[in-house]
Nucleic acid binder design. Structure first.
Length: 557
RNA sequence: GUACCCGUAGCUCAGCUGGAUAGAGCGUUGGCUUGCGGAGCCAAAGGUCGUAGGUUCGAAUCCUGUCGGGUACACCA
């Protein structure tokens, strides 16, 4: 609808003024009309005269009911009811009213997010990126892409040495058989606790520090020799698997799409190291104090270590290996990585290194970064587990808050609350998460949208829904106008990879419906058939929108 | 110190390809139920868009300075 109108205006402007000005159509307040454009003001002097000429032609278009000039030279356009109304049947026929603009049709896109580390706790940030990544993947699929979901995590590195050290302490030596004593449901938790214990020892105890460093080397060595037999290796592989089991369990409970592939760091290290060594010969990297570094200063960046003076690869090298591995595996058109914004500068250095080997990867990469997740009111964190906010802290706080408003699908409501609370905010800044607000049915929340859906469904479930085509009345028109915005909203969300645009829209849509609902009866009214059709379209759009966000749309609550 | 990000209503946030009277939720105050789910709706009060300049017919939006907050800057990830 929008595109058609835009191209028609473009043609008019070209005929009248010979200008190839880009036509930007916006949605003004409803009192001004359905669309608004400022082209007349872009055409130089006398915007009013320009506008008048354009309006004259605009009025002759079939879709346009009214066109007026307003303010400093805006052209406000009101569509005919017939045109506007066509979205109802479009929505109902397609059942997937996401618009037809498949900008990624046939493209392969690799989306990397979540990225939890085995042998470590899941932080609130992991929760955030998991949920956001899932929605971004949905958006890309909507736009026609073949999306591959991948997950990167550190199964080697100092944190692993730290946890392994504490595990061995806990087991009283390298006794893998003792792991059997730990109950299945406690495994993930237990490993996380060992990490915290090890970290404390590393920070406060020189002897432990040396032992941890030594164990760290043994973990790398175990991969080099493909050791699955030694007691040490058995402990390692068992606990690593426990971590992955725990991650998958979390993803299941969050009802997000499963990952296509895990890339453990141990599997990207070799290629990373080879690449760094080749780069060292070519002068991309240099030796400095026994370490291999990339000096980024000439590019406005900073120096980072790729191989330590102990000869161990750092995260930088593994990330380099990861990028190359993803490229080998998928030959993607686009690679998206979602991480915290504390590593933007770091990532630039890795990209700088990458540029010397596979520049096309850099050209096709997009790094999306988000802020920190905090609990509103500075609610205390699980200090015994370290000083970071954990994924479980967030989920537990939401569950606790939701108990005040219990209903049928408690878990579904909690998920809706958390997901929506995260997603409604533009990606990038810090997020202050307020559990109470998120589960509240009042206000801009996931449960509000679910309720808005259930409420409308309760009407539809009482009557069979015909599909009719009456003339719209004033309040019906308001609702149809909002429904008609869906394709352009989804398009914008896809183009900019901003899920919050969908949230904002759905909230406005639900408000529009609730407002309509309050003022108009449906069942038993002369306009019953028309209104049932309209509500059916509304419910379809709301449900599809929520699905895009990974949020369920229950018929009852 | 250098670089990047962020400063919009009491609080949490939209708005940022420059455009009409800067919007929403929460909170506050006041209304609406012989009604399809009132877990709703309607309304009011509340803002020098951190600040000072610049560009422009027009700036919350672009540019520069400045203040405040956050993050990153060599062997952690």
């Amino acid at each position: 609808m929008k595109e058609v109108l835009a191209s028609e205006i473009k043609q008019i402007v070209q005929e009248l003024f010979g200008s190839k000005a880009k036509i930007v159509l916006t949605r003004p307040e409803s009192k001004f009309g359905d669309f608004s454009t400022n082209v007349a003001m872009q055409l130089g002097r006398a915007p009013a005269e320009n506008a008048a000429k354009i309006i004259e032609k605009l009025k002759r278009l079939d879709e346009v009911a009214e066109a007026t000039i307003a303010g400093p030279g805006f052209i406000n356009i009101t569509l005919t009811d017939a045109t506007l109304q066509s979205v109802i049947s479009e929505v109902l026929d397609k059942k997937e009213a996401y618009g037809s603009n498949k900008i990624y049709d046939g493209k392969t896109i690799v989306a990397e997010y979540s990225d939890p580390n085995p042998f470590k706790v899941l932080h609130a940030g992991h929760l955030y990126t998991t949920l956001t990544g899932d929605v971004i993947a949905n958006l890309l699929e909507t736009a026609g892409a073949n999306v591959k979901l991948v997950n990167f995590g550190g199964d080697v590195g100092l944190h692993v040495g730290t946890t392994m050290w504490a595990i061995i302490q806990e087991l009283g030596g390298e006794h893998p058989e003792k792991l059997a004593d730990i109950k299945t449901e406690n495994r993930m938790q237990w490993v996380s606790e060992q990490y915290v214990k090890g970290t404390k020892a590393f920070e406060g105890n020189e002897a432990a520090k040396d032992e941890i460093r030594d164990i760290n080397k043994r973990v790398y060595a175990l991969h080099d020799t493909n050791d699955h037999e030694s007691p040490f290796a058995q402990i390692y592989w068992t606990c690593r698997q426990w971590s992955y089991d725990g991650f998958n369990e979390l993803y299941r409970s969050l009802r997000v799409a499963p990952f296509d592939k895990y890339y453990p760091e141990s599997e990207t290290t070799e290629l990373g190291v080879e690449t760094v060594q080749e780069g060292l010969k070519r002068g991309v990297f240099e030796n400095s104090d026994g370490a291999v570094v990339l000096k980024g200063e000439s590019a406005g960046l900073h120096t980072r270590v790729f191989i330590t003076s102990e000869g161990l690869p750092t995260y930088e090298t593994k990330d380099l290996g990861l990028a190359l591995t993803k490229w080998q595996d998928y030959r993607f058109d686009l690679s998206i990585m979602i991480t915290g914004n504390d590593i933007v500068e770091y990532m630039k250095v890795v990209q700088l290194a990458l540029k010397s080997f596979q520049p096309e990867i850099c050209e096709r990469s997009k790094h999306i970064t988000h802020g920190m997740l905090k609990l509103a009111g500075g609610i205390k964190m699980s200090s015994r587990k370290g000083n970071a906010l954990l994924a479980s802290d967030v989920l537990e706080s939401a569950e606790k808050a939701s108990k005040a408003h219990s209903n049928n699908d408690q878990q579904g409501t909690v998920l809706a609350a958390v997901k929506y609370a995260f997603l409604k905010q533009r990606i990038g800044g810090d997020i202050i998460y307020d559990p109470e607000e998120s589960v509240s049915i009042a206000g801009n929340s996931g449960p509000y949208l679910q309720y808005a859906h259930a409420r409308a469904m309760s009407i539809l479930l009482k009557k069979p829904t015909p599909q009719v085509d009456y003339k719209l009345d004033v309040s019906e028109r308001q609702l149809v106008r909002k429904i008609s915005e869906l394709p352009e909203v989804v398009e914008a969300a896809v183009n900019e990879l901003m899920p919050h645009l969908v949230c904002t829209y759905l909230y406005e849509l639900a408000q529009e419906f609730n407002s309509f609902y309050e003022a108009n009866r449906v069942i038993g009214e002369p306009r019953e058939d028309m209104r049932l059709t309209l509500i059916n379209a509304y419910v379809t759009v709301l449900k599809n929108g929520l699905k895009l966000l990974g949020i369920s749309a229950p018929d009852h609550m």
